[in-house]
Design a protein around this nucleic acid. Structure first.
Length: 1154
RNA sequence: GGGCGAGUGGCGGAAUUGGUAUACGCGCCAGCCUUAGGAGCUGGUCCCGCAAGGGUUGGGAGUUCGAGUCUCCCCUCGCCCACCA
């Protein structure tokens, strides 16, 4: 058959298989199950890509082979049809995405079916069907119920072009992954999923699954755990004790608030307006809300004082119901002018008004006005006065008032346990804990950092906060340089990520003036900066900066002239020297500073050491003494730098005085410093004695400054010259031994980490890079998030029996200008009733991200038509987990991680039977265009499967894609290659077989070797070599006039998974009544595959010099004799010293020349 | 900058895991068939050499009877992450 009619054959078998439901998986079966899955496609308008064909054919080959091996194979297909391209297309054309999706899936289905892929079409699913997304929504609600979804106002990545919030994962190099527009930061309320709660397990359980290593590595990097410590730094204001005024004259409230302060160890004096002589600060106009009222009160008070005002809230809850403050007051005043009444009078009237309410409700007032006010209602729990917002700090004297701003950070998010900017969840109540904690933060008792290097704590010379750190916002008004701070903060916020990184690592920052931190290790006061090289989203948003041992901190410290103190050294020998000298220098320097003197004096050995250290900046010398040449050199050098005087006598007051007079005329008493220093160290003292004299260098501050400049210039010139890494640009960032670390000096880093952390009361923690998943999209074409917002009850889930919340049809697909979903414009849909209280409420208008529907689809395949649960537990028990999941490398981080997260959560709820969704994961390589560039329709270099199916047939296309190269590697397309496969198949069709020809070695051997090779290779997805083995076999067949029918039929069976149509046709043609696909998979016969003869290589000194054929498994001496005979001339004149024999493979003569 | 991976003909790539390097396919060359054409057939195709023979897996060293494969150094390319404390 020179040319076989692929169109006819392929059509015939495809319709036959469809009619027979040939590839339907049985839910009830005696056979072992095998669940194979490919990533369900996004049905784009472009149609099928040859990349799809590669992945799906590979698993199709596997599926067909395993069916033949007796497995009950589930190989399903579906559509991941929500998504931006369809929505953008709808935007452009105004067409309904439902219709577009239908067209696209129809086209995909037709294309897939033309390839003969053995999918189980009876389980076809579509994420955009409401019968599917009903369960996506249901699953979302399970997360909500367990507190794993929450709404948070956060800075999100905002793509100004797509008008859509992006997950961190969708931002590539600071640009939108889809359209490449630089991403902006925007504040937005978003649904979040607390994937971080599962970070540790998602990380650990990677050890239990069989994923390609690269996928595991990438997931591990993404989760990014690092072990370290959280350490608190005490803070101190450099200002007198803060006094603030409480905007109420209600003593009870004041007392309670004072108690809160006490409990929180907040050292603030809380005053009543009376205490500062303000009797009344009435609000002239009515406020409409509680907040407004309290703000107005605070403002009124703030206008009368320069002190910060701590605003009271004047509303009350009774039995959980808020009493309108305006109404209370109006009733209390009863038409009288507020100003004409005394505070007490108003209070009294209000009390009776409350008593009135209480009476009406069948309760009574059970507390003293001004002390505590309680209403008791029969049968109900007493509710004491609560405020909706406990405190508001404001201060007119500090400019613009945002009354709520200072309190941001006081709320604890139930989902994350972290402070959030706004109270967003109705369930979050105002407990004492959060308030005192918040106040503690507010008034700066401590600041917690995360560090992986607690061992370097003694070298922490400053702290850095992220610009968005809550503390900065809370206290923005309190810094001495508040304008600068606020400006920096604003600039950082407006910077897109691309700006933040594009500036080429040049670090910027601003010191928070008026506040200092205390290094808990050495009790030294250190400055605090804000800088955008610290990320608010990682760790605690604050760091201790150790410039000597962290490159970033080092760069920052250099730029801003901050002290650099080494606290770790790579080797112990360096330790002794540096430790002593640094301590000595420090002591003297500190002492000199205290005395406010401009000179310092070093004498004796200290001088020598210091000089040595200094001098090493210029030239390496071992020791300086007064007689030493290098010492003279040093003096000369110092002289050049402007050094004024060198004394070479035992230091005395006289001498000192005279020296100093000669310089700038300031006298100091150096004696005590020298003595203090000398006595400090035994070694020094001893050596001092032996030297028996002092050599003194007198350095002026001016000189020191100059010297430091010089030192800066020389940094990095000769890196190996100095073992003090921090003097160079290259910082010593590894573990080593501690120096300058008090009693811990000398300890190795790893030991010191725990010790220091315990020593300063910190705790060891693991921090992850992984962040919570932004789950909201302000878009149309996605699953509506099934939540309802009620003014009274907060966020309420849509009751499960009301699912699905179907996506309504809209006229316009554009997001609103404010970035809300187009759904927000459909008031009829948006307005609904609160499921809890029945009052007016609004639907969430955001939709879910694309990853939602794909996070659980493998479960739906198991039971796609189930109307009362997402899948039957029994069926899940049979089918899960997925045995083998193949997909693109680009999905190994996001999709796979999200999917594992959902699955683990479901496992915890007892909803799925296994902890991991996928047992094995492989990834196919990309198919590139012929020129090696990425294939795309716009470039016009893409290959259409349709055209190839038409011209050479699906079998040739399948075969080529399997043969094209290693499955996991990217490969370039080559159209001629397809033709080669077509040629191969035509030759297959031409093979003649009969029942007379015998199957015997060597062909029999090769056949069995091929069975083994093809079987093994398919399991390893080494499809290219499997096909190659079949070609080799065919080449042998063609050398014969005719082959035995056994050989022929086995060949067809082996080729069937790759080229199902042609092989089925040929099988039928050779007279079989049943289909080839029902035949069992051939099994290689070990003895037959061994053959009868072996080809033996003969080597001399490892180089091949000949070859022989020998009977298989010949013994060694036979082989040696045969081999010797074969190369006897080449061994002539040489002595064989050794013979190495590898049975059935080679004989190697080791010879020595004569 | 950090992590991972890879370098073999004109091209895609193979090599039983330390044992005859360049299988299989594409392309190319020659011949055949053909009015012609090539998606047909036959043969050839790593390099030097007429040959005998010799050399060759990015470069350099090492271990070994024997290295594409293992070790070290260097070079080049690809992917992922990227101020993660």
């Amino acid at each position: 058959m020179k040319n076989y009619d692929h169109k006819k054959i392929e059509k015939k078998w495809q319709s036959r298989w469809e009619k027979e439901s040939a590839y339907r998986a049985d839910d009830v079966s005696e056979k072992p199950k095998d669940y194979l899955m490919i990533e369900f496609p996004y049905p784009s308008g472009e149609g099928l890509h040859v990349g799809h064909v590669r992945s799906w054919t590979a698993l199709d080959v596997l599926a067909r082979k395993r069916r033949a091996q007796g497995y009950n194979v589930l190989y399903p297909i579906g559509w991941d049809a929500f998504g931006l391209p369809t929505e953008n297309y709808a935007l452009k054309t105004g067409r309904d995405p439902r219709i577009v999706t239908k067209e696209n899936t129809d086209n995909f289905r037709r294309q897939i079916k033309s390839l003969g892929l053995s999918f189980d079409w009876s389980r076809e699913i579509n994420t955009t069907d409401s019968s599917y997304y009903k369960w996506t929504q249901w699953l979302f609600l399970q997360f909500f119920k367990k507190g794993l979804t929450y709404k948070a106002k956060t800075l999100i990545n905002w793509c100004p072009k797509d008008k859509i919030g992006l997950a961190n994962e969708e931002v590539v190099d600071g640009c939108c992954e889809r359209c490449g527009t630089p991403v902006e930061k925007r504040e937005k309320e978003q649904w979040m999923m607390a994937i971080t709660k599962y970070a540790q397990r998602l990380y650990d359980d990677l050890d239990t699954v069989d994923y390609i290593e690269r996928a595991k590595t990438e997931q591990r990097n993404w989760i990014g755990p690092s072990d370290g410590a959280e350490i608190s730094f005490s803070l101190s204001w450099q200002r007198p004790r803060m006094r603030i005024v409480f905007a109420t004259n209600n003593l009870g409230k004041l007392k309670r608030m004072r108690k809160l302060f006490e409990e929180g160890h907040i050292d603030i004096e809380l005053l009543m307006p009376k205490d500062i002589g303000i009797e009344r600060f009435d609000v002239s106009e009515d406020a409409r809300t509680l907040e407004e009222n309290s703000e107005k009160k605070a403002r009124a008070l703030a206008a009368l004082t320069d002190l910060p005002v701590f605003a009271d809230d004047s509303g009350f809850f009774i039995d959980g119901e808020m009493i309108d403050p305006i109404a209370v007051k109006r009733n209390a005043l009863a038409g009288d002018d507020e100003k004409s009444l005394s505070i007490e009078e108003i209070g009294g009237r209000m009390q009776s008004y409350y008593a009135d309410i209480a009476r009406k409700r069948g309760g009574k007032v059970d507390a003293e006005w001004r002390n505590n006010l309680c209403f008791i209602t029969p049968g109900k729990v007493a509710t004491h006065i609560e405020t909706t917002r406990p405190v508001i700090l404001t201060s007119e004297s500090h400019g613009a008032v945002d009354p709520y701003l200072p309190l941001r950070g006081l709320y604890i998010s139930k989902a994350t346990g972290k402070y959030v900017l706004e109270q967003t969840d109705a369930e979050e109540s105002l407990e004492l804990g959060p308030i005192t904690d918040g106040l503690k933060k507010l008034f700066m008792q401590s600041l917690t950092v995360f560090t992986t290097r607690p061992d370097t704590l003694f070298g922490a010379t400053y702290m850095v906060l992220a610009p968005e750190h809550p503390l900065v916002s809370m206290l923005a008004n309190e810094f001495d340089n508040k304008d600068e701070v606020i400006a920096y903060q604003t600039a950082a916020r407006n910077k897109s990520d691309i700006d933040r990184t594009a500036e080429g690592k040049e670090k910027t920052g601003v010191e928070l003036k008026g506040i200092k931190a205390i290094n808990p290790a050495n009790k030294k006061e250190i400055p605090i900066f804000i800088a955008d090289y610290v990320l608010g989203s990682y760790g605690t948003g604050a760091i201790m900066a150790v410039p000597a041992h962290d490159e970033r901190d080092g760069a920052f410290a250099k730029k801003y002239g901050l002290p650099i103190i080494q606290s770790v050294t790579p080797d112990m020998s360096a330790f002794e020297k540096t430790e002593k000298v640094l301590t000595a220098l420090d002591t003297i320097y500190e002492a000199a500073k205290k005395k406010d003197i401009k000179f310092w004096v070093l004498g004796g050995l200290a001088c020598a050491f210091y000089a040595k250290i200094i001098y090493r900046e210029f030239e390496d010398i071992d020791l300086i003494t007064k007689d030493d040449n290098s010492y003279q050199k040093l003096l000369t050098l110092f002289g050049e730098l402007g050094f004024h005087k060198v004394a070479e006598k035992k230091i005395s007051e006289n001498l000192t005085n005279s020296i100093l007079k000669n310089d700038e005329g300031i006298e100091i008493d150096i004696g005590p410093y020298i003595r203090e220093f000398d006595c400090q160290d035994d070694d020094f003292e001893e050596q001092e004695k032996s030297l028996n004299h002092h050599t003194a260098l007198v350095l002026s501050q001016r000189f020191v400054k100059k010297f430091k400049e010089q030192q800066l210039k020389n940094r990095g010139k000769d890196k190996d010259k100095i073992d003090w890494e921090y003097l160079n640009d290259k910082f010593f960032v590894d573990d080593g031994f501690l120096v300058n670390s008090g009693t811990l000096s000398g300890l190795p880093s790893d030991e010191a980490k725990k010790m220091i952390t315990e020593f300063v009361g910190g705790k060891m923690v693991t921090t992850f890079k992984l962040r919570d998943w932004v789950f909201s999209r302000q878009r149309y074409w996605g699953e509506p998030i099934p939540m309802i917002h009620c003014e009274r009850c907060g966020w309420q889930p849509v009751p499960e029996d009301q699912l699905p919340v179907t996506l309504p049809e809209v006229e316009k697909y554009e997001p609103t200008e404010t970035g809300e979903s187009p759904l927000a414009n459909i008031t009829k849909w948006v307005n609904t009733k609160c499921p809890k209280c029945g009052g007016d409420a609004k639907r969430e208008t955001d939709v879910m991200p694309n990853w939602a529907g794909s996070s659980w689809y493998y479960l739906r395949y198991i039971d796609p038509q189930n109307t009362h649960e997402f899948a039957s537990p029994d069926l899940m028990k049979y089918w899960t987990p997925v045995n083998w999941y193949n997909g693109g490398m680009e999905h190994t981080v996001l999709h796979l991680l999200y999917s594992r997260f959902w699955h683990k959560f479901l496992f915890d709820q007892g909803l799925v039977p296994s902890p991991e969704p996928y047992m094995k994961r492989t990834s196919h390589g990309l198919i590139l265009a012929e020129d090696g560039s990425k294939m795309s329709k716009s470039k016009g270099n893409s290959v259409s499967p349709d055209a190839l199916v038409e011209s050479v047939g699906a079998d040739s296309l399948r075969l080529y894609e399997m043969f094209i190269g290693p499955f996991d590697q990217p490969v370039a397309w080559n159209n001629n290659g397809v033709v080669g496969m077509r040629r191969f198949l035509e030759r297959v069709a031409d093979i003649k077989a009969d029942n007379v020809t015998k199957l015997e070695p060597p062909l029999e051997t090769l056949l069995h070797q091929t069975i083994k090779k093809v079987s093994d290779d398919i399991e390893k997805l080494k499809m290219n070599t499997a096909v190659s083995a079949l070609m080799i076999l065919l080449n042998e067949y063609e050398k014969l006039d005719s082959v035995s029918s056994e050989a022929y039929e086995t060949f067809l069976k082996l080729l069937a998974p790759f080229a199902p149509h042609l092989t089925h046709e040929l099988w039928e043609k050779s007279g079989h009544p049943t289909e080839l696909r029902l035949e069992p998979w051939p099994v290689a016969d070990e003895t037959k595959s061994k053959g009868t003869t072996a080809h033996i290589a003969i080597q001399i000194n490892g180089k091949t010099r000949g070859e022989i054929d020998a009977a298989i498994d010949s013994d060694k001496s036979t082989l040696e004799n045969l081999a010797h005979e074969a190369v006897v001339e080449k061994l002539d004149g040489k002595t064989v010293s050794r013979v190495i024999i590898v049975p059935n493979r080679l004989v190697n003569f080791v010879v020595v020349e004569d």
